[in-house]
């Protein structure tokens, strides 16, 4: 039950193809980061999974069943699509109560989720008085009401304060540890790299990447090391002899592309050069992602300045 399967999923809005023959699955026990530029089709895919929009072709299922065929779906899937969608005139407690009641979930669970999401003291306040961060917390409380095996969050850390960001990260890690399938879209690369085990990347509605995080990072760049030594001149010569091109950085550290620590370390040792620091360089998720999407970005000019949702 704890999985999302997407097969050949396609959605056209008029002449625009928002989602184009997507195939991927979200497996239990890990957090799957859902990345892509604005308009890549992430939110559309999530709506299709929930049966809110109907696919032009293809299927999106939860444990093999269409969302609309699930009885009491909140027990199977919890979703946060848009924190602003909750009606501002309702209190947080009534908002959750209306959702809970429809799926046969008791009032005690509503109170429990208000507490857990840090909204215990403001449950009786109208949602319109909430900050974006509080609405995100409410949306997450709503998603977890039915203790679902599949959790789908669209930009959950949007508007959260640093404490909230830590909270959501720990929460997602915990949900995955408990064996749930967790799909989280985000624009924040450093955020995503801090919680995701697996990545699904879209560009212009098409699947670009469906890989474990480590594999994705490795696939996007060759090896490289960063090092510090007391005898830079000698080490530099030794490296150049081996055909490498060390580059000195502003902070006195050297970086060497195309070589791993397992080669540089023994080399320095055999030359009798002391190393103060030696580490393999991993590309950040941001670098790897930008390298990947550079030519896929529809709105490259705006992407850096407008962090809005698609």
């Amino acid at each position: 039950m704890n999985s999302i399967e997407v097969h050949g999923l396609t959605k056209d809005y008029g002449a625009t193809r928002a989602v184009d023959h997507l195939d991927f699955s979200v497996r239990p026990g890990r957090v799957t980061g859902f990345l892509g530029p604005n308009g890549a089709g992430k939110s559309t895919t999530m709506r299709l999974v929930l049966g809110l929009d109907r696919p032009t072709s293809g299927t999106a299922t939860i444990g093999g069943r269409a969302y609309t065929r699930l009885g009491k779906p909140l027990h199977s899937v919890g979703a946060l699509l848009d924190a602003q969608a909750a009606h501002g005139s309702r209190t947080a407690r009534n908002h959750l109560a209306a959702l809970a009641t429809s799926n046969g979930i008791g009032r005690s669970r509503v109170e429990e989720m208000l507490e857990e999401s840090g909204l215990g003291t403001v449950g009786g306040r109208r949602i319109r008085t909430f900050s974006l961060g509080m609405r995100q917390r409410l949306g997450i409380a709503a998603a977890l009401l039915g203790d679902p095996g599949v959790v789908m969050l669209d930009e959950p850390s949007n508007g959260l304060d640093p404490e909230g960001i830590v909270w959501i990260r720990e929460l997602m890690r915990r949900l995955a540890r408990e064996g749930r399938a967790v799909l989280v879209s985000s624009h924040l690369m450093s955020e995503t790299s801090s919680f995701a085990d697996h990545l699904v990347v879209l560009g212009k509605g098409r699947l670009l990447v469906d890989l474990p995080m480590e594999d994705f990072l490795d696939s996007r760049s060759g090896p490289g090391v960063r090092l510090r030594t007391t005898e830079p001149a000698r080490l530099r010569k030794a490296l150049i002899r081996r055909g490498h091109a060390p580059v000195q950085g502003d902070d006195g550290c050297w970086t060497v592309a195309g070589v791993g620590a397992e080669e540089v370390g023994p080399l320095a040792a055999s030359e009798g050069i002391p190393l103060l620091e030696l580490m393999d360089l991993k590309p950040t998720l941001e670098q790897a992602y930008l390298a990947l999407t550079a030519n896929e970005t529809q709105f490259a000019a705006h992407a850096s300045t407008t962090p809005e949702k698609d």
Binding site: G51, L52, Y67, L70, L74, G88, S102, N103
Partner: peptide, 18 residues
């Protein structure tokens, strides 16, 4: 119309997809 404010219908239909 309370269901059509800011996409509230999506929340409602997520809970009651029928």
């Amino acid at each position: 119309s309370a269901e059509f404010l800011n996409g509230a219908l999506r929340i409602s239909l997520s809970a009651v997809p029928n």
